[in-house]
Amino acid sequence: MRDQRLWTWHVLAGLVILVFLGLHMTIMHLDIIFGFFNPGDAKPIDWVSVVGRARMGFFTVSYVVLLGAALFHGLYGLRNILFELGPARGVKSALNVVLTVGGVGLFVFGAWAAWTAGVLARSL
């Protein structure tokens, strides 16, 4: 049942990523064409732009959702590739643990950073 569950969530996560990463890429890399959420002449990665976005609750939520979806989608994809190499059962179990712990760890760290940046931006 596990693979049916994981693959379904892999696809659903892909759809979530399509929306939120599409928005992220439009903001960060199509800024001259669209100019979304970048005040004045600031570049998307300038501190003023970062703070401007971090003040908006929508972005904090979207970063956390994108972080979770992308970590799951990416690490499941990596797991699929590694499992297709035909490792032994024990190696598969170890990979499951490493990828799960690594993924959860990065999610907690990234979500903390997004939340803290939001709090910091509002305090400025």
Partner: peptide
């Protein structure tokens, strides 16, 4: 994730 978390 690591690089951009510096904004916190």
């Amino acid at each position: 994730i690591v690089v951009t978390s510096a904004r916190a």
